[in-house]
Computed example of a mutant assay.
Amino acid sequence: MMNAADLPDTIPVFPLPGALLLPRARLPLHIFEPRYLSMIDDTLKTSHRLIGMIQPYEVPGSKEKRLHSIGCAGRLTQFSETEDGRYMITLAGMSRFRMQEEVTGFTPYRRCDVKWDGFNADLGPTEVDKGFDREAFLDLLGRYFDHMTLSTDWDSLKEADDELLINSLSMLCPFVPEEKQALLEAPSLTTRRETMVTLLEFSLRANAEEDRMQ
């Protein structure tokens, strides 16, 4: 287990819209762009093997793209190379970070100076959501999945612990990037679950209103 003293001040970042990584969760990625292949090669040479997943966003009124201030770093734990030179990797979520500034240099990928303050719980034990009404949540989720024509292994969802269930759904559900960012920035598992419930209910209400207007 990594501790706060092991976390570097500068990390490579992968700005991928809609790709959410959370602490203690796993994110598989397919890497094929040359600049990110270079990023993986360089990351494998480090002791920490950390890559920061962060959401880009477009500045209103222009085409300029910036990075959100908060992302989540994952440790490269699985790596394989295809015959045509692409990489299949898995990042294990370690801790969220707050971006300070981008680092200029000679790498083809982006790097940032980061701060880890305020996210100490990310390196701690699994979180528990003490107010979690699983039955009501799964009922709401079932209606959302029907609306979105999604399928899942309901038995696995019923058996998963609180953190695995909520974080996995946060990462996998087809929320827009800004909604994914809100889930990332939730300060606790309980507030993440509350945020997700709000997003699910909003989607269902919007669908009901569309049906009424047709």
Rank of each mutant, 00 (worst) to 15 (best):
Glu201Gln: 14
Cys173Gln: 10
His147Gly: 00
Cys112Trp: 10
Pro23Gln: 09
Leu44Met: 14
Lys65Ile: 15
Pro8Gln: 06
Asn207Trp: 12
Val13Gln: 05
Phe132Cys: 00
Arg26Met: 12
Leu169Pro: 00
Gly52Gln: 07
Leu7Ile: 01
Thr77Gln: 06
Leu16Asn: 03
Leu138Ile: 03
Ser170Asp: 02
Asp117Tyr: 03
Ser95Asn: 04
Met99Leu: 15
Trp116Ile: 03
Met213Leu: 13
Phe137Ala: 04
Tyr109Ala: 10
Glu81Tyr: 05
Arg86Phe: 15
Arg26Thr: 13
Trp116Val: 01
Arg24Trp: 09
Asn167Glu: 09
Arg134Ile: 01
Ser95Cys: 11
Thr77Arg: 04
Phe175Arg: 05
Thr191Trp: 08
Met148Tyr: 13
Val128Ala: 10
Ala121Pro: 00
Met196Pro: 01
His68Asp: 12
Pro15Gly: 10
Asp122Phe: 07
Ser151Phe: 12
Glu201Pro: 00
Leu164Gly: 08
Met171Ile: 05
Glu81Cys: 10
Arg96Asp: 05
Glu178Ser: 14
Glu179Met: 05
Leu199Lys: 00
Asp162Gln: 04
Ala121Tyr: 03
Thr195Ser: 11
Met171Glu: 02
Glu58Thr: 15
Glu194Lys: 09
Asn3Trp: 05
Arg193Glu: 00
Tyr36His: 12
Phe79Asn: 08
Leu204Trp: 02
Ser95Glu: 05
Val128Gln: 10
His48Leu: 04
Leu172Trp: 10
Met53Lys: 05
Ser62His: 09
Leu50Asp: 09
Glu185Ile: 00
Gln78Met: 12
Ala136Cys: 01
Met99Phe: 05
Gly61Phe: 10
Val197Pro: 01
Asp146Phe: 07
Thr152Asn: 08
Met2Val: 15
Asp41Phe: 05
Leu150Met: 15
His30Ala: 07
Phe97Pro: 02
